[in-house]
């Protein structure tokens, strides 16, 4: 079993990661961190660059959980990548971050969180960013 978390360098992403670390530690499970990008834009601020990835790895190291950081660049949506990793790593829990969206934003962008919630085959824990 493992805990899969979709990570992006934003407050809600951080909140999800924090929670996922705690969950993995409690369950004595492996933590699978997914930071993916469709790679279809020149710049993707949600994709962690090399130095950020190193910092992330150190942080997970310090947290003392067995972990793996995946950064797939296969042109897939983040939801697909998280679901994919959940399946291949036998996830017992998926942790995702949520943020408030305007109705228009939901309409245009679809919702990664919604797809994960509906399609995941294991429990999904949705975390909001700490207020303030």
């Amino acid at each position: 079993m493992s805990v899969v978390v979709g990570y992006i360098p934003t407050p809600e992403g951080e909140a999800a990661l924090e929670r996922a670390i705690a969950e993995a530690r409690n369950r004595q499970d492996r933590l699978v961190v997914i930071n993916s990008s469709r790679g279809d834009a020149y710049v993707d601020q949600r994709f962690v660059q090399a130095d950020g990835a190193e910092a992330l790895a150190r942080r997970l190291e310090a947290a003392g959980v067995d972990h793996v950081l995946l950064q797939p660049l296969r042109g897939h949506d983040a939801a697909d990548e998280v679901l994919d990793a959940a399946e291949s790593h036998g996830a017992g829990l998926i942790v995702i971050g949520l943020r408030r969206r305007t109705p228009v934003g939901k309409l245009i962008m679809g919702s990664t969180a919604q797809r994960i919630l509906l399609q995941a085959e294991c429990p999904v824990l949705a975390v909001k960013a700490a207020a303030g």
């Binding site: 790679g39 834009a41 020149y42 710049v43 993707d44 601020q45 994709f47 042109g75």
Partner: peptide, 8 residues
């Protein structure tokens, strides 16, 4: 195509 995105 450059597949790996950069960040600003």
């Amino acid at each position: 195509l450059r597949r790996k995105p950069l960040s600003t």
